[in-house]
Simulated scan of single mutants.
Amino acid sequence: MQKFTLLLLSLVLLAPLGIDLYLPTLPQIAEGLATPVSLIQITIPLFLLVMGLGQLVTGPLVDNYGRKPIALIGLALYIIGSIIAATATSWPLFLIARLVQGCAVCCTAVVAFSGVRDRLSGDDAARAYGFLNGALNIVPALAPLLGGLLASAFDWRAPFWFLCGYAALITVLVIFWLPETRPANTLRVKGLPLAQYAAILRQPRFLAFAFANAGALGMVLTYVSLAPHVLMTEGGLSSLQFSFAFGANGFWIMLVSVFVNKAIRKAGRPFCLAMGFITMLLGALLLMAGMYLLPASIQTHWTLYMLPVAVSVAGLAFTVGPATSYALEPYQQQAGVASALQGFIQMAGGAAGSLVIVTLPLAEKMSLAWMMLLGAALALIAWRCSKTIQGTLTALK
């Protein structure tokens, strides 16, 4: 089972690598393609948008045709997109490459989370989801550094050739070692399963846990969006210092995720959801205390931003694994469709919430504090929902 989980992780990593690896090279890409940096920057939200919307399409494909074939199609698209990006000579070609990669990760993400649901349930599934989501945080910690080193040694195209090579390697591993896990009794659908999506969306339990994930993700996206201005412009950190602070937070979430996996086994999923609520609430209170209770002369110090963030992002680790497992447990025969819908709500809801908060006429720290409070409120709702179903489902043996 450990080999199986690691294979699923290799598929999940395609998405964050596709975002974080080329972040340090945005100015060089703009210069190389003779286009404004702003046009290169918009490929990031477009990538996420395609990934979120595309899961609604790939979910039924995974249920109809199996996990492994769709994973291989996704990997092939990823390789094609990476090659187009690495050889692009204009912004339209680069945009096409990013859209192709976005379509690719729709397939691999749904396959990975459907695979967990196929093989595991209950606390075992929660630990697997927590492992996948927790391990993702090592990518923002290391990928920008790796991308910068590759670009320095070669040029801005090198990170995309790296992505091509990585996807090719994972393709070989999937062909030989990834089993087909689709249950024989999986419900097949024709076209876009709007009726199935509507039926799932009518379930308060599903919505409670899916939106808890969206709140936690939205909180992290808000932190990431505001961090460069707060830490470098206001806090005075250099680019290198910012990289270390940003990367350390990724390692911190990994450590918390290890603890959460043990906590799920010993204390249960409802306890972890309660801790998600507490940590996000505490992070918001610490952030606001630094703004209103401390002297103005030290309010711009970077630690007054990163310490509350460290407390609050622990809520992501506590929330995502249990919430995802609870959301998907009732849908063994529709794992692909349910995983796709859950992923769409998590990504689209988190991104939308973050965008709305950031665009409000609020100070950066206050915007983040409000997003932390929203994430805490959604985690509280999920915890209350979990108390009504605790013990009704157990792990598969």
Rank of each mutant, 00 (worst) to 15 (best):
F4D: 06
L7Y: 04
L8M: 05
S10E: 05
L11M: 03
Q28V: 10
L39N: 11
Q41T: 05
I42H: 03
T43W: 08
P45E: 04
L46W: 10
G52C: 02
V57Y: 09
T58H: 13
I73D: 00
I96M: 10
R98E: 07
V100I: 15
A109P: 01
V111G: 05
A128R: 10
G130T: 01
V139T: 00
A143M: 06
P144W: 02
L150P: 00
F162Y: 12
L163W: 03
G165L: 14
L173V: 04
P179Q: 06
T181G: 09
T181V: 08
N185S: 15
R188L: 13
A199P: 00
I200Q: 00
A212P: 14
A212I: 11
N213M: 15
M219Y: 02
L221F: 15
T222R: 11
T222V: 07
S239I: 13
A248I: 14
G250K: 07
V258E: 14
A267Q: 15
P270H: 07
P270D: 13
M275Y: 07
G290V: 10
P295I: 06
A310Q: 08
S312R: 08
V313I: 08
L316N: 04
S325I: 13
Q333M: 06
A351I: 01
K365A: 12
L373D: 05
L373V: 09
C385R: 14
